[in-house]
Design a binder for these strands. Structure first.
Lengths: 224, 224
DNA sequence: TGGCGAGTGTCAACGTTATGTCAGCAGATG
DNA sequence: CATCTGCTGACATAACGTTGACACTCGCCA
């Protein structure tokens, strides 16, 4: 189990490392954004402890990058107790959890192991549904062994629907998922209608009709 | 999405309910352990907000019971800032998250939706009653393996009746449940007659007659 | 740099569905 | 029987979803 600690307070970072090592985790530390980005490229961590308030840039930037490359899973945000907004932004950006400074080390441990436990059940890089296969890493979709082109938003939307197959996803959830956290878009659903429309169209052209069902008053559901 | 709030400070409970209702969650409140245990038996909640320090017994008891009956998933512990030990105990007992008092309501919301989002990946959520099966996530109802279409209100109503099976539910309770908190509708029952009528009709068409019984002067009862 | 084009979000008009209201009738109650 | 409660179908309308056309943005390449 490998953990990345992104934290500029060296003393704190040190004691975290020491403590987590005792729990037999492998730890690496990044003291700034640049450092962190490099490490993230090099290795897939099981858990990332991210201090939101770094000196050389907001930690949210890192989180955004993580999310963009589908690695935001397993991130625990660490923040000063008063920056509630950042924490909420972080959670909405896909962070798994957060911890307020100052915290107790046993608490850190409880959270880290909870996150790792959770990630185990997350699964692989390909998601299939009948004749549709989505490759998360390659960002491609194949229907009956033919590759179909989707734009990025369409891809994200399809992903989101498929990974929630047989469940109704609310438009709120979709908006949240597609925009990250663009407050302006959160309560406007027109753009969702647009994407749903395009997605349905492309799927239909590929021979997949009626997979996306609208659930009146609630949202959409991917099912047969 | 249904949330149970276990909290003895009535004023706080009230503002939580108000806020969460705005986010379109259905809320119920229990002010003490006894009350809480009863409600937990009656319904599967999507999320339980549990104040650890209740007057009539430690909230951890409730959590232990929840865990014993496999319902600890989705519990968010609420505790006074200083009782760190309780929080750690809670997390180790399987609670999903915690929140320190005092907290900001948007933070509550972020955590609740995170917990619910997480639960989505746990597996489907179904409730059965004889030949009727209700899929809460898929928002579908199957009767003898045939899917039956219900509108949202009908679905909610059916859910409410089933989750109170064998008990008389007053029209007041139904109105409260269906409208959220629309004061205009609270004392008008015509719309309930309407929904009951439609519900009965659709159930009858699917082969389920006489499940919904009228209790003159009191309300309705779902039973065989 | 400036212009092109795909990708995204906005909008208005329209079709669809759900939901509450009502008036009158039916059934229960005492 | 008088009264109160509940049932029903028809209806208005508000909420919702769909569509196509369009405007804006942003990366890309000349």
């Amino acid at each position: 189990m490998k953990i990345l600690i992104i934290e500029d307070e060296k003393q704190l970072a040190k004691s975290m490392v020491q403590f987590l090592k005792e729990q037999s985790y492998l730890c690496e530390v990044a003291y700034n954004e640049k450092d962190a980005n490099e490490k993230i490229l090099l290795y897939d961590y099981d858990c990332i402890l991210l201090d939101i308030s770094l000196p050389d840039g907001n930690g949210l930037n890192i989180l955004e990058k993580l999310k963009a490359s589908n690695k935001a899973d397993g991130v625990i945000i660490i923040s000063a107790r008063n920056s509630v907004d950042d924490r909420i932004k972080g959670l909405n950006l896909g962070a798994d959890d957060y911890l307020s400074k100052p915290f107790f080390l046993p608490e850190l441990n409880a959270r880290v192991s909870a996150v790792i436990r959770r990630k185990r059940f997350a699964g692989s890089n390909k998601v299939s549904y009948h004749e549709i296969t989505v490759d998360l890493l390659g960002k491609t979709v194949t229907v009956n062994d033919t590759e179909v082109d989707f734009t990025r938003k369409e891809f994200d939307l399809l992903m989101f629907l498929i990974s929630n197959k047989d469940r109704v996803v609310s438009k709120n959830a979709i908006a949240e998922h597609l925009t990250g956290d663009d407050a302006d878009l959160m309560d406007k659903f027109d753009f969702i209608y647009s994407h749903i429309k395009n997605l349905k169209k492309k799927l239909a052209e590929a021979g997949c009709e009626d997979y996306i069902k609208t659930v009146y008053g609630l949202g959409y559901k991917f099912s047969t």
